[in-house]
Nucleic acid binder design. Sequence first.
DNA 1: AATGAATGAGCCTTCATTCAT
DNA 2: TATGAATGAAGGCTCATTCAT
Lengths: 223, 223, 223, 223
Amino acid sequence: MNRHSSEDDLPASPAPRTTRHTRARRLRTAPAAGTDKGEAILRAAIAVFARRGFFNAQVADVAREARVAAGTVYLYFHNKDHLLVSIFQRTMREALAEGRAVLDGVSDPVERLRTIARVHLARVGRDRDLAIVTQVELRQSTKFLEEFSATGLREYLGVIRDLIADGQRRGLFRPGLSPTLTAKVLFGALDEMATNWILSRRHYDLAAEADAVVDLFLHGVKA
Amino acid sequence: MNRHSSEDDLPASPAPRTTRHTRARRLRTAPAAGTDKGEAILRAAIAVFARRGFFNAQVADVAREARVAAGTVYLYFHNKDHLLVSIFQRTMREALAEGRAVLDGVSDPVERLRTIARVHLARVGRDRDLAIVTQVELRQSTKFLEEFSATGLREYLGVIRDLIADGQRRGLFRPGLSPTLTAKVLFGALDEMATNWILSRRHYDLAAEADAVVDLFLHGVKA
Amino acid sequence: MNRHSSEDDLPASPAPRTTRHTRARRLRTAPAAGTDKGEAILRAAIAVFARRGFFNAQVADVAREARVAAGTVYLYFHNKDHLLVSIFQRTMREALAEGRAVLDGVSDPVERLRTIARVHLARVGRDRDLAIVTQVELRQSTKFLEEFSATGLREYLGVIRDLIADGQRRGLFRPGLSPTLTAKVLFGALDEMATNWILSRRHYDLAAEADAVVDLFLHGVKA
Amino acid sequence: MNRHSSEDDLPASPAPRTTRHTRARRLRTAPAAGTDKGEAILRAAIAVFARRGFFNAQVADVAREARVAAGTVYLYFHNKDHLLVSIFQRTMREALAEGRAVLDGVSDPVERLRTIARVHLARVGRDRDLAIVTQVELRQSTKFLEEFSATGLREYLGVIRDLIADGQRRGLFRPGLSPTLTAKVLFGALDEMATNWILSRRHYDLAAEADAVVDLFLHGVKA
DNA sequence: AATGAATGAGCCTTCATTCAT
DNA sequence: TATGAATGAAGGCTCATTCAT
């Protein structure tokens, strides 16, 4: 983790230069998924980072996995770090987009909770390599974690927090609870389920546990 | 993370080498805490790993922080990895010991839950550097995480799981809950509180949140 | 300075390739100056080499400066070295041509000396970028220097040497002097004036010093 | 020529740390010549740079020539550039010291001139590898040249200039001459003799030409 | 036991050059 | 002719580890 370059967003095919003298390659925000080389490199990075860990993975490994020359990686990403950051940003953006889309028609706080939990775990459970990267490799350093925390997590916790507050206003949830703390508890529970799933040898259905977690979150353990 | 050497336990005062070129040095299991150089090196490692991250920290940094020559580190620890593993093992052992001691006279499941939460967060909140290492640096790779999971976490979750099952038997907790999942949820909640505290700029009292978490865990959010 | 390709001369409009995969492209000897792309590339190279130094300059920089694609450079020049060699050869040729033209009607050895010095310094002082390349960048390696020495310098020194010998024959110059050494001394003096001018922050008139140098060369320092 | 590190002076055996936490290795100014590793590396660098040119030389080559591991070079020099800078600084310092020592008892301006020329050419002629480095490799970039100019050359020219001015005051030299220009002319002449000697295949005695150059400088070419 | 100079394998990144379009 | 995306060899530098003292 040498230098940080969080300026850019997602990689893509080297974009047509808008100005003549663009030195630093501008990278488009959304590559045509599955079509171009940047996409292939990013996929390769996910696989390689998951397999060997970010620090042990070599850029050459990623290039090989993407069936690309080593130098080509640098046409699409500023450096090794940027690969990880890009994976994170892309994942976060897609997750939040999916979440918002799914939550769109749901106004009942309880139902929203259930939806969030299901989408969260279904997403993680869908791509094990990606899950390893986001659940493990991304949390390598406080630097990344802080970025993670500052960027995506804050927003995610915000959604839950608002939902809780809304439920309290509607009289559905206990008024004494701190929405912030409550949001952290739910996220922590889901995150732990995810991490446990990754570390488990068994390939059980992670999403299937969403309802149980929400049930516990709603009613507690007390009889 | 080059090679792995999980064979040994905690470092200690270097035993006399039996042969001249003993590659693997024999390290006592339990160093007289706080007394010898191995202890100083371990403390230094915690500080340095917290400050710069495990991968960016150099063994020479740790040695300097411990006011010791670089080579000396290798008299007490097999390699850089072993420093991290030792920190983890020592922390885990102490945490479990403290937990057991405190839980010793407490039989009421609810009270046990409260105790666990308080001790957990108080421990993390007591030493920020150590917390950074255990909450962040230790989770760098699946390799470490798996060891973490296999060694300490399993036991920790076991304690909670048993407690839940006991509560269920006593009719205190809802019978339908999976003790295992329930344990993960509680651990996840506490762990998230801990990680959030580390990433937060504010130095609030982490332990103070234990009761709120337990209350939520016990009664859920539902009104 | 990877490979050397001193076979060819100046770049020109790319000749039609005879075979499909002709590795060495045939380049005309004398491009229509100022008209074609090769000329633009050469100019760009001078600017870029002067600005960043030959080794730090990238071929892509030259291409960008010439408003041409990177690959186009290779249609006109064999490789990066060839750019430098071409600059040198062109400059040398032009300098010698100008020198000969100006010296054409001058037969008096003293006047010839004065003319040479004036033309030399005026030439260097006319184009600072080019001067940087010829005075500094071109002298990077013994390889280039040897070529420089073998090609242009030898001829240049020859002109001075003959002039000195002629003057001696005419009884104008001291008979004891070695024409060769004397030529080197004059060239060294002029060259040093040129290099000093480049390194100086002040943009004084270099050519204005020609007469003083010649005066010194003619009469020495002795009172 | 990537980064520049002109802060330090000559390399030497890793100096005993004065303070405990010296991160950046301080390098002593004058290594015990011929005794330590830094010296050996510097000698190796001169040989390798002379043989292959600075840019084409690899740090590994230098290390091999010095019979040292590649990493060891970095214990004594900050980076590749620093090797070249160190050669230059050391040479300059020694040359100036020798010059001053030899000039010490000489007050007659003419004799001083003769002495300077002899010492200058004798020095260059004494070590061909070193001469190649200082006459050729060191003049690679304006960056180095500027440093060269600013550091040693300025002082060198200053000595000649003062000598000229002194001679003028004493009525030995022509009053109309600019001491500065005159100094450049002499230096340029000597420098050219040196460079020519390097490029020449014949291994003639460079120092032997000193008197002829000075004679020309004193009396000019005019009969 | 302790030191710290020395080692050398390892890796990210650059950039001259190619070639399909 | 022209393009510029792709290539991949090359090399400076780091740093965990060793070992002579």
